[in-house]
């Protein structure tokens, strides 16, 4: 059982310092969770600490690959607006 940090991570260090297991590695291009060390904070905290402080939606996934902070859940920006923004970005690039 372990969580996973994926490419959306912006390397802000917030999770590193709250992880009770020292499981988070400062890596490039983005931080990583050492699956062997991660306990999902089980027995220590009600919520996994990294996912409770991470400011970036969909940067941390649970063991089954589902984002703990889904898109829209942290900023409150309506999904429709986010989708429209994505389209603009794709069209531009």
């Amino acid at each position: 059982m372990a969580l996973q940090i994926v490419a959306a991570c912006v390397n802000c260090f917030a999770c590193v310092e709250v992880c009770p297991s020292g499981a988070i590695v400062e890596a490039k291009p983005h931080f990583l969770i050492n699956a062997k060390q991660c306990t999902e904070c089980d027995g220590e905290y009600a919520d996994p600490q990294c996912a409770s402080i991470c400011p970036i939606e969909a940067a941390i996934l649970d063991a089954s690959g589902v984002p703990l902070n889904p898109i829209g859940s942290l900023t409150g920006i309506p999904l429709a607006l986010l989708a429209a923004r994505e389209e603009v970005h794709h069209a531009r690039s």
Binding site: V10, N11, C12, F13, A14, V16, I53, P55, T75
Partner: peptide, 14 residues
């Protein structure tokens, strides 16, 4: 000091 403990609506942590 990179980490933050709140979110402000005028900020994007990127």
């Amino acid at each position: 000091a990179p980490a933050c403990n709140i979110q402000c609506n005028y900020c994007n942590r990127k």
